[in-house]
């Protein structure tokens, strides 16, 4: 199923409506292993709806979503086992410790206890969270919670990492540390899809998909779209015009 040229993520003509409201319209994208794809859009652009389609939380009305060649609807198990997901809303159990939350997640992904212990240690170390493994999540600050969610998303060794506005509400230093870390994961070969409304989180080499009112209005390398300055201008035009430029 997964060939050498199989894209890590493939979305083809995906559409989704909620009643009369069209949240996504004919969205297509592909992402290769090692690619960092930033889905950029203002609130209401359809980023989270796209994210929900990619994670199988919602079904497409039309179109399809594939993860490493596995259709998210028809081969849900195979597709989800390759996906690491960081949701915008916190999904940690505040009454459990960091390692208990990680163990729970490992079990939900069918990882054996012995393997879990090994992977939890490695992922927490990667995110500088080892010292906090016995702390209750309730006692962690926002930045540490976010790091923990990223560590958790990596524990089953996914090949594709999806993050939905992961830096919302964090200070600049933590934001920068998390952004750099995830960019490094992409350089190491992981396919990353990062939904955001913050242009400064996008690197020069990243692929940018500019989403507006449920449609892709620009798609290309950040450098080709004029780097940060070009993206700011483009994003600003979209925001002010309220329509595709």
């Amino acid at each position: 199923m997964t060939g050498r040229n199989t894209p890590a993520l493939r979305v083809e003509n995906a559409s989704k409506s909620f009643g009369a409201k069209r949240a996504l319209c004919d969205v297509s994208l592909t992402a290769a292993p090692g690619e960092f794809v930033a889905v950029l859009g203002i609130n209401g652009a359809g980023k989270s709806t796209l994210f929900s389609l990619l994670t199988g939380l919602l079904d497409c009305d039309d179109g399809m979503v594939e993860v490493l060649g596995h259709d998210i609807t028809r081969s849900r198990t195979a597709a989800l086992s390759k996906l690491g997901i960081v949701f915008q809303e916190p999904t940690l159990d505040p009454d459990l410790s960091v390692s208990q939350n990680m163990r729970y997640f490992c079990a939900l992904h069918g990882i054996s206890k012995a393997r879990s212990a090994e992977r939890i240690g490695a992922c927490l170390a990667q995110l500088d969270m080892v010292e906090r493994k016995d702390e209750k999540v309730r006692a962690l600050n926002g930045g540490h919670r976010r790091r923990m969610e990223i560590a958790r998303a990596l524990v089953h060794e996914p090949q594709v990492l999806l993050l939905d506005e992961p830096t919302v509400g964090l200070d600049a230093t933590t934001r920068s540390a998390i952004t750099n870390h995830v960019h490094q994961l992409a350089r190491d070969g992981m396919c990353v899809l990062w939904a955001t409304h913050l242009v400064d989180e996008i690197g020069y080499d990243d692929t940018v998909i500019l989403l507006h009112e449920g449609r892709v209005v620009r798609n290309g390398k950040a450098a080709e779209l004029g780097g940060s300055e070009g993206l700011y201008a483009l994003f600003d035009t979209v925001r002010k015009a309220g329509a595709a430029p």
């Binding site: 198990t77 809303e89 999904t91 939900l108």
Partner: peptide, 13 residues
């Protein structure tokens, strides 16, 4: 609150 999503994205049926 969103915690349900963690369960719903488990690869188990």
């Amino acid at each position: 609150m969103g915690a349900m999503r963690l369960l719903m994205t488990s690869p188990f049926p």
